[in-house]
Write a protein that binds this DNA or RNA. Structure first.
Lengths: 250, 250
DNA sequence: CGACGTGTTGAAGGAGCTCAATCTAAGTGG
DNA sequence: CCACTTAGATTGAGCTCCTTCAACACGTCG
């Protein structure tokens, strides 16, 4: 009986993929036996730069990272936030040349796997392949929700939505709960997630706080009444495609 | 020597996937031999509804379709536009339950393939599988550009960007050129792509027209100076991951 | 012909931006 | 331990891009 608590460095990847498909013990072992090298980054360090041609797919082992694009007038748009277990760079490495940047948000540990090895595993073990494919589809689903968030919700709602998403994702990653979590992001970074200015992000957060929807202490967020925050953020978690018993569906 | 001009209904799918990976004649034949049923939709018809559990993956054979979400206050955000050859519904069908709507923009012909058959083919023929995976990654890449577009560009720039994207994609699909194309969308739909109001979309288009960047006659668009429009739209086509000799890289 | 969908135009209001000052907390060096 | 620096957060005031509301124009189709 292979144990899930195998202390291979890639176990966060196993945990993540196991959420998408029923992996056999052999599947899990095959993932853990992938060749990899570990790299670490300090906050702000570039993991991938727009235009790079990366040879590796990366799995986030610890810490947080974000993807972003810089537009013509110098503005930055954050495209997604990544945490432990996320396959950060399947996209870029399979697409040959990166069309956006990936940067460390906190201190980050990364396992880099040659993308040929990822491809081989995907096709040698269809269950693993389906799980990886599924993972990329969930990523795209989150992208779609973000398009709707920045396109059609006002500042306060966008902000609340983002806080809800973080709660659910951190809980599924085992890094917090929908009641309380730590998120090491500045308000400038939050504003770049939502297409707002830092000034307006500050005001939106204060508004949510003064309504009693969130409490903040440093970078920690407490949510006393999930239902009210979800309502304020027009948040329904279905687009995350997680089904955890602990997560209130509104 | 299998011919590419095989008149199987699924040839638009072959054409599309062949752009992403070097398919062998056997690969192409295997795609064309997928089981399918053809369905057609009138403009406005729902192909998939939020919450559905579709059993099929769909390929667009002719016409245009769009994905969209409705947010809490009733606003609509269009997430992507699809044209001949696009694998419209891999996402929804593999994710079990749809998190957005897919609707016909014009008269549409669709080939519906049981998603089990798609999955089997993907793993029986890794080259085809890689092409399909690649296709979903390009889809996600377009989503990321849209996040940046609605999040960090002003109305005029967003609009120009969208017109550029249509030009390139229609040209690669063989439905027009970057000099001139038809796009059967109302200004209300265009505004829902960009997170603007119909009124402001009208003004943005007029502005681009009065600057001589586009000419419009009904739903047809002419672009005399691609470089200037691309500049105005902050458009660089790399995120589309197409490499066609005909497309100016700015 | 009237009705309807679509696009255009004007005027007024507002959500969010810009600019700039102030405040706080956490270093850092002496 | 304190002065100094710096990154981040907050607040205010004025401005602008975009929205809202409403009227009107145009073409199509019953």
């Amino acid at each position: 009986m292979a144990s899930l608590t195998d202390n291979g460095a890639l176990s966060p990847m196993v945990r993540k993929l196991a959420a998408w498909a029923a992996l056999s013990p052999e599947d899990e072992r095959a993932i853990l036996e992938l060749p990899y090298t570990v790299r670490s980054f300090s906050p702000g360090g570039y993991i991938v730069r727009d235009g790079d041609k990366p040879q590796n797919s990366c799995v986030l082992l610890s810490g947080f990272a974000y993807r972003h694009k810089i537009v013509g007038d110098g503005g930055r748009q954050i495209l997604s936030i990544h945490m432990k277990g996320d396959l950060v760079d399947l996209h870029n490495s399979l697409l040959h040349t990166a069309d956006h940047n990936v940067q460390a948000l906190s201190q980050v540990e990364l396992a880099c796997i040659p993308h040929e090895a990822v491809k081989e595993l995907a096709f040698a073990r269809p269950t693993v392949g389906v799980a990886m494919w599924y993972d990329t589809l969930v990523d795209a689903s989150i992208h779609r929700e973000w398009i709707a968030n920045v396109g059609r919700r006002d500042g306060r709602t966008r902000t609340a939505h983002l806080l809800c998403e973080f709660g659910v994702r951190l809980e599924t990653a085992g890094l917090g709960s929908t009641r309380e979590y730590d998120m090491p992001m500045t308000q400038e970074q939050l504003s770049d997630c939502t297409g707002l200015t830092p000034v307006h992000m500050s005001r939106s957060l204060k508004a949510l706080e003064s309504e009693g929807l969130v409490r903040r202490t440093k970078r920690a967020v407490s949510i006393d009444d999930w239902g009210r925050l979800a309502e304020a953020g027009d948040f329904r978690p279905d687009y995350l495609h997680v089904t955890m018993p602990g997560i209130p569906l509104l």
